[in-house]
């Protein structure tokens, strides 16, 4: 008995709010909930009062009423106007959730049946654990090795599906040091309920301490460089002169002219695709079928390392400073190579 009383006393009713987002989403949540309660009360009062007052004992003869267009319009339009407020408010939060601040710290997440693999820019790796500093915007770039997962931290009120074949991002700014749940919220197979972990929010100094403890294998970019060499990428992607393949220095986040006339930004998604399926987008002036497919050959984690390496080749242009007005980088082959590109590519 006493035990059950204690359970009831500890009954959690509302989640802790530990991020900047949490406060604003909670505010909207309570606004909608308040409106919902108000509407529920109105309906229940209406049902109750009418059922009591016009019970057949007290009111044996019904008065026939056709209806009232005025009333109908009132209770159609008024709720809709209130819902427009919800819509606008919600859309604003959704927009903010999709636009990470430019100075956000980047962490990489790979979902795999049934674990979350976390990679930090300094090369530290964790499984089912995420450490973030308080007060610092953090952007997660997420990939899946297999099925659809969904990365969720209830205390931060953030969640995003992790679709195989795509990069998905979410961001948050933690506000309260602590130890919070991390869940997968898209059913992903047998041990779906085991795909959970902890998020630790640390004070900046503690975070610095924690961060200095890891990284024995070098930074993410260094790991990427190692892979770049191991896989023989460097034989064609020469760093400073035109080889059979585009130069990668200075590429990251710059517009690239494609063979079919389009221009795309060389962001994470583009580089990922170009590694796994090089023929999907061919840079203008180059031939298809030169580079082997790496799909199934290297893991999403390795792709993240390679991207970090390629990113490190353009140190002066962090993501924040990319401008759309910049002209496309000229990475087309030199005149000599362009003269017989087929020959260069096929042999």
């Amino acid at each position: 008995m006493l035990a059950s009383m204690r359970i009831l006393a500890d009954l959690p009713l509302f989640p802790v709010a530990a991020s900047e987002q949490a406060g604003s989403i909670d505010a909207l949540y309570w606004f909608i909930t308040a409106i919902s309660i108000l509407m529920t009360v109105i309906i229940f009062l209406g049902l109750g009062i009418f059922a009591w007052k016009y019970h057949n004992k007290r009111h044996p003869h019904a008065t026939q009423i056709e209806g009232s267009t005025k009333l109908e319009l009132t209770w159609s339009i008024l709720p809709f106007l209130i819902m427009l407020i919800m819509f606008g408010w919600g859309a604003d939060l959704y927009y903010k959730a999709q636009t990470p601040p430019k100075d956000a710290m980047e962490i990489f997440v790979t979902g795999k049946q049934w674990m979350w693999k976390i990679q930090y820019p300094d090369g530290t790796r964790e499984i089912n654990a995420l450490h973030v500093p308080v007060g610092q915007p953090v952007k997660l770039t997420m990939a899946s090795e297999d099925v659809i997962h969904s990365f969720s931290i209830p205390a931060f009120r953030v969640r995003h599906d992790v679709m195989p074949g795509h990069y998905n991002t979410l961001w948050f700014t933690a506000t309260k040091p602590g130890h919070y749940h991390l869940f997968c919220t898209e059913y992903c197979g047998d041990q779906h309920a085991g795909m959970i972990g902890w998020v630790d929010v640390l004070e900046p100094r503690e975070y610095a301490n924690w961060a200095s403890g890891g990284a024995s294998q070098g930074s993410l970019a260094e790991q990427g460089q190692k892979l770049f060499e191991q896989n023989g990428c460097a034989t064609c992607h020469l760093l400073d002169q035109q080889g059979r393949c585009p130069i990668l220095r200075g590429l990251y986040n710059k517009p690239v002219q494609l063979a079919d006339g389009r221009t795309v930004i060389a962001d994470d998604a583009y580089i990922r695709e170009s590694i796994l399926d090089p023929n999907a987008k061919i840079v203008a002036g180059f031939q298809p079928n030169v580079m082997p497919n790496f799909k199934g050959q290297i893991s999403e984690e390795n792709v993240i390392q390679l991207i970090a390496y390629i990113k490190s080749l353009s140190p002066s242009t962090p993501a924040s400073q990319q401008g759309s007005q910049q002209p496309p980088v000229v990475i087309a082959p030199k005149a000599g190579a362009a003269a017989k590109p087929g020959g260069a590519a096929q042999h």
């Binding site: 604003s24 989403i25 909207l28 949540y29 909608i32 919902s36 939060l93 959704y94 209830p154 953030v158």
Partner: peptide, 11 residues
């Protein structure tokens, strides 16, 4: 309504 609202659907 909580689920139709973009912001609260996230949570």
């Amino acid at each position: 309504l909580h689920l139709a609202t973009l912001g609260t659907d996230i949570a």
